[in-house]
Amino acid sequence: MITLLGTVFFCVLITLLSYFIGLKLYRKYPKDWLNPLYTSSVLLIILLLVTHVNGDTYQEGSFIFNLLLQLAIVSLAVPLFKQWSLLKKHYKKICIGVICGTGLGLTAVSVMSYVFHLNEQLTASLIPRSVTLPIAITISSDLGGITTTTVFFVIVSALISLIIGPKLLKRAGIKSKSAKGLAMGTSAQMLGANRSLSWGEEEGAMGSVAMTTSALFLSISVPIIATVLNL
């Protein structure tokens, strides 16, 4: 009991420490690649390796952050409520963007899994890759995927979208503010919504709207996907 408490305390402390260092660094030098997500993660991995804490122990000790993530999902109701009038006004645009984005992403995953002959389990873990983490985990286990793998896929694809997204959209000649926000929110969820907020108010609002709607859209369409896959 005491050791568990000690582990939790140590893990929380060390995580907060690396986050604050990362945040400080980012505030001083606001560059895209210095996002606290990268710097703090790298710092934390180094710290854990130096202190000889293995992955399983850390995972045990950091369950508190998982709980906070669940709370954060509930908290999303507040921005959604603030954007309700915007959502009602633009619901067609939002639905089109979100459905096309998630639909194309899903198709790409299914086609390529077929081409590369991936096993079903891996495919099932790949399908929910573009939704918010806690929702993705549930979808993946419903489809028979491996949840830890899904966590990895979600984070990696969010990172990929976050890194290439802004440049890709610029290269593709996308000028519309809502298109930029919706694209980032659909494919990079919370990270994308955060990023699009730095473009401006409208992009940010569209980003977080896209994130919530795409999560809802995928969790509703999962039973359909499951039946299609079984055929």
């Binding site: 986050y19 606290p36 993660s41 950091s62 998982n66 906070l68 993530l69 984070i155 919370m190 990270l191």
Partner: peptide
């Protein structure tokens, strides 16, 4: 962002 760090690291 803080909440995404633990899953990545573990």
């Amino acid at each position: 962002t803080l909440l995404f760090i633990p899953p990545i690291v573990s």
